[in-house]
Amino acid sequence: MHKRLSELAFGESGTVRYILASRHELNCLGVRVGKHLTMITRQPIKGPVVVAVDGMEVAMGLETAGCVSVEVD
């Protein structure tokens, strides 16, 4: 099942299938196609999304997270 990264529930994880935002912006933070990630937190009031990739936490804007398509485990 595919979901937007911004729609992942807390603790849910999956594999990045495609990125519709500026790839560059996320790639340099370690989020790229094929990477496995886990939702850490989605801050309220359209706040940032924090995910764990390779044992490190990466924060991104909700809008950016909405551009990342994830295949849920």
């Binding site: 790639n27 340099c28 933070l29 370690g30 390779d54 044992g55 490190m56």
Partner: peptide
């Protein structure tokens, strides 16, 4: 500990 990210 974060070699891959740094390599970018």
């Amino acid at each position: 500990t974060r070699v891959e990210r740094g390599l970018y």
